[in-house]
């Protein structure tokens, strides 16, 4: 072992990241449903709704691609961080991979660093591809000033960090057999009520209030504040972008998720200790 345990942990974590990335890219279903889906949907929505947006309506003034870009960035965040992590950890616990890792001297932190590394690389790549497609294929104007990009950076970071720890925490309630339904169902539902697939303003108030409890709504709202014109703030339920509240909610979810992870994480499936 290297003399410095922290360096050793990080070196193994980097190695785990490489391994996780290889496994991720080799699983074609995962690549499609967590990585490509938001990109495909952005293209689809732009083509389908392109005309109605051009003709003018509630969201007049922006193209369909521009309108859906923040939603798809937010959707990508929850898919690559929460859904992908919850599914993979649940599977790995069930098929004994976690137990085998636990039987080696690898520090547990290296395993989690590997997961974080995977999520960081996939989320960043996915977001970059989304922005590139929006800009180059659909001519969506991107922000020109540092302030918008700073907002983009912290919303993305908090969203991905929270999604990852919550995904690891949530993996404990799913078995490999139930993971598909237990994870994907709620994620889909949350996307609908959080204003990812249709405008948040069209969702009944009581459902808006439910959505506001969860982090996805705030990631989507934060992203809208980055990519939509400033006067769109009036369409939000609060009539403003609420950056302060967004930061607080996302931070609380991250801390809560981390605490639950640390307290409940299991290396073995139930009944096998």
């Amino acid at each position: 072992m290297t003399t410095n345990p922290t360096a050793h942990t990080i070196r193994l974590g980097a190695n785990r990241t490489g391994l996780e990335l290889r496994m991720f890219t080799r699983e074609k279903e995962a690549v499609f449903f967590t990585f490509l889906l938001p990109i495909v949907l952005l293209a689809l929505f732009s083509v389908v709704f392109g005309d109605s947006f051009a003709a003018g309506g509630d969201e007049a003034g922006v193209s369909a691609a521009r309108y859906f870009l923040p939603a798809m960035v937010a959707s990508g965040v929850i898919l690559t961080s929460f859904q992908s992590t919850a599914l993979s950890v649940a599977m790995e616990r069930d098929d004994g991979l976690l137990k085998r890792l636990r039987s080696t001297p690898m520090p547990p932190s290296s395993f989690f660093l590997g997961k974080v590394g995977l999520v960081v690389v996939t989320s960043a790549t996915q977001t970059l591809v989304l922005l590139a497609v929006a800009r180059l294929a659909f001519g969506v104007p991107l922000p020109q000033d540092a302030e918008h990009w700073l907002t983009f950076a912290w919303v993305l970071l908090l969203g991905v960090a929270g999604g990852t720890v919550l995904g690891i925490a949530f993996s404990s309630v799913a078995s490999a057999r139930s993971a598909g339904a237990v994870v994907i169902g709620p994620v889909l539902l949350l996307q609908f009520i959080s204003g990812v697939y249709f405008p948040y303003s069209q969702i009944p108030t009581w459902l808006q209030q439910v959505a506001a409890v969860f982090p996805l709504k705030w990631v989507a709202q934060g992203m809208r504040s980055v990519f939509l014109p400033d006067d769109f703030a009036s369409l939000e339920s609060a009539g403003a972008w609420e950056h302060g509240r967004t930061a607080v909610v996302l931070l609380l979810w991250f801390i809560g998720g981390l605490v639950v992870c640390l307290r409940t994480f299991r290396w073995f499936k139930r009944g096998t200790t």
């Binding site: 070196r11 193994l12 190695n15 785990r16 391994l19 290889r22 496994m23 080799r26 699983e27 599977m91 790995e92 098929d95 004994g96 991979l97 976690l98 137990k99 085998r100 039987s103 080696t104 001297p105 690898m106 290296s110």
Partner: peptide, 23 residues
């Protein structure tokens, strides 16, 4: 262990090289 999976997408060399680093 009595049987463990989860390595399907890797090759034996990849799994062994990574595990070796821990020792």
């Amino acid at each position: 262990l009595q049987g463990s999976g989860g390595l399907d997408l890797l090759t034996p060399r990849e799994a062994l090289s990574s595990t070796a680093l821990a020792y």
